[in-house]
Structures are given as structure tokens and as C-alpha cells.
């Protein structure tokens, strides 16, 4: 059994493929460590209670709420944030589609939607409108009314599929 003191915890956190050794208070969530200790402010927060979806990140490929995950629990796991979505300077097809289709208005919920949509398409490349709607049901957006987001995911899926089949 391993115990940590209440003061600070040191873990190696792998974010977007890079491992960093970090020292932080054990009560910090992944959200807090990403934003405050790693400066990765692309991950947003709208409630910090698991009620909005703005802070979604991928943990071992699954979209989760970083506000509800203690950073300590991520020891040895792979974290992927919006900052890691593009392939170097080349945007992910979902990013291109979100930008083109009006899926990002204020842009605040966008990182959470994008990582969730990426996880969906990684698993269901031909996701139907119903599956997209269901998969994104834990991400609130107050700007778009969601329709252009659905369309963007579909456009990205189509482009990714076309690329695969080439």
C-alpha cells in the first residue's frame, strides 16, 4: 500500500505523449494540474462539479471529466488534451470541420466537444447522427444549438473515412 502525505505529491504525468514529473497538492484534480501546473489552459472549466462537460480530456483514450479525476489517479495513464489533438501544425480533421462548419462560436465548450468527438470517431468511424447526439450529450453548449456541431463531426468522419479508403 502506498500512502502520500497531505502536503504534496510527486507523480509522473504523461500528457499528449510527454511525461513530466510534477509536484502538487494531492487534492488537485487533473483539471487544476493541467491548467495551473502545466499551463495547458486549452482545457476549460464551467462548473468543476461534473455538470457541463467543458473540462473533458481523454484518459487512456476515453473521454472523461478532468474536474472529477484526481491528478494522482492519472499516474501511469495517458492524458490527451486539446493541445495534443493536432498532428504537429496540421489540424485534426475534427478541428478543421469545427472551424469550417460554425461548430465553435465562443469556443469555450469546443475543446471538450472536440476530444469527446475524437474518442467517438476513434471507436465508431461511421457514427450515425443518433450516436453522435448520444456521445456528445454530456457536453453542454450554450451558443450553437448543437446542430452545426453534429454536422462538423459528420463532415470530419466523412473526410477521415475518405482518407482511410484511399
Amino acid at each position: 500500500m502506498r500512502r502520500s502525505p497531505t502536503n504534496n505529491a510527486r507523480i509522473a504525468l504523461t500528457v499528449n505523449g510527454e511525461t513530466k514529473e510534477l509536484l502538487f497538492a494531492p487534492n488537485k484534480t487533473l483539471l487544476e494540474v493541467l491548467r495551473e501546473d502545466l499551463g495547458l489552459t486549452g482545457t476549460k472549466h464551467g462548473c468543476e462539479l461534473g455538470e457541463c462537460g467543458a473540462c473533458a480530456v481523454l484518459l487512456n483514450g476515453r473521454p472523461v471529466l478532468s474536474c472529477l479525476v484526481l491528478a494522482l489517479e492519472c499516474d501511469g495513464r495517458q492524458v490527451e488534451t486539446i493541445e495534443g489533438l493536432a498532428d504537429d501544425a496540421r489540424l485534426h480533421p475534427l478541428q478543421e470541420a469545427f472551424a469550417d462548419c460554425g461548430a465553435a462560436q465562443c469556443g469555450y465548450c469546443t475543446p471538450g466537444f472536440l476530444v469527446t468527438a475524437k474518442a467517438l470517431l476513434d471507436e465508431r468511424p461511421n457514427a450515425t447522427r443518433g450516436e453522435i447526439t448520444e456521445a456528445l450529450s454530456g457536453n453542454l453548449c450554450r451558443c450553437t444549438g448543437y446542430i452545426q456541431i453534429f454536422e462538423a463531426v459528420e463532415e470530419a468522419a466523412a473526410k477521415m473515412g475518405a482518407k482511410e479508403s484511399k
Partner: peptide, 18 residues
């Protein structure tokens, strides 16, 4: 930012340890 209070964190390796 809503933050949890301080606590001691223990990792159990088995149900019995927990």
C-alpha cells in the same frame, strides 16, 4: 475554481488492503 479540501491519499492494491 471549486476545489476539494485536503486529505491523505492511499492507494490500495487489493480489496483486502482497501
Amino acid at each position: 475554481m471549486m476545489r476539494a479540501g485536503r486529505f491523505r491519499y492511499v492507494v490500495a492494491k487489493s480489496a483486502a488492503e482497501a
